[in-house]
């Protein structure tokens, strides 16, 4: 049981309105594993992340979390099963203060008594957030909003952490720190699914890489072999 995959996508297809954005994607993440999801824009990375956290339902195939079939489950049931997802972009409640944003999530994930400790942890992770704890999140800079969105999932230490476009809009030094934190969390047994455009960090952190192209998995393998494949893929005119 302990070695059962935390997340298993089997032949998952997904649609966006009339358009199909995933074609039979299969992906397995074992407890404590770290998988990087790479690919060009529009390749379907974000959709995979969304299916994995229940935001988008698979139109075909199956999704299991911890061995339980969750194909039909609602988003909040994924969260309760231990999947935490920091979506791409400025995914914060814009009219909430920084503290309210974190509290909303910590109340359930950490329990009432540990909200305060969770807030302190988030602020020590990102001191900028601590300085702005009572500022409305909508008025934060793009980078600070990313920090807020990430600090939520970093503090909760879920069974599976999904981060979409992790480093987007963050200063390089902050990105370094986030990756250090991710490495620490990984040590405590959290599995990671990292979606990235800047690939270097992702390759250093993760052991496995899945490369998406036009809604299918084009390549899957260990991170050590990934660099060359990725370069050829993104710049394949030069590679050929």
């Amino acid at each position: 049981m302990t070695d059962a995959p935390i997340l298993e996508l089997t032949d998952v297809s997904a649609e966006y309105g009339p358009f199909r954005s995933l074609f039979g994607v299969s992906l397995t993440i074992r407890p404590g594993a770290a998988v990087a999801l790479l690919g060009a824009n529009g390749a379907g990375k974000t959709t995979v992340a969304r299916v994995a956290s229940g935001l988008v339902s698979a139109s075909a195939g199956s999704v299991t979390v911890d061995g339980t079939d969750m194909t039909e489950a609602r988003t909040y049931e994924f969260a309760r099963a231990g999947v935490a997802h920091a979506p791409e972009g400025r995914s914060v409640f814009a009219t909430f203060t920084v503290e309210e944003n974190l509290t909303l999530s910590f109340r359930r994930a950490l329990g009432r008594s540990r909200v305060k400790a969770g807030l302190e942890e988030a602020y020590s992770l990102f001191p900028r957030l601590g300085e702005r704890r009572s500022q409305t999140a909508g008025t934060l800079s793009g980078g600070e909003q990313r920090m807020l969105s990430l600090s939520r999932v970093l503090v909760e230490k879920p069974r599976l952490l999904i981060a979409d476009e992790l480093s987007l809009g963050l200063a390089p030094i902050v990105v370094d720190e986030v990756y250090e934190t991710l490495a620490t969390i990984r040590g405590t047994g959290t599995a990671l699914l990292i979606v990235e455009q800047h690939v270097q960090h992702a390759l250093e952190l993760c052991d496995d890489v899945a490369l998406l192209d036009h809604g299918t998995i084009a390549w899957e393998g260990p991170a050590s072999e990934a660099a060359e494949v990725v370069v050829t893929h993104l710049f394949d005119r030069e590679g050929s």
């Binding site: 909040y76 969260a79 997802h85 999530s105 994930a109």
Partner: peptide, 10 residues
């Protein structure tokens, strides 16, 4: 959607 991501049934 984001509320549900926090584990709360909307």
């Amino acid at each position: 959607r984001m509320t549900e991501l926090a584990g709360i049934p909307a």
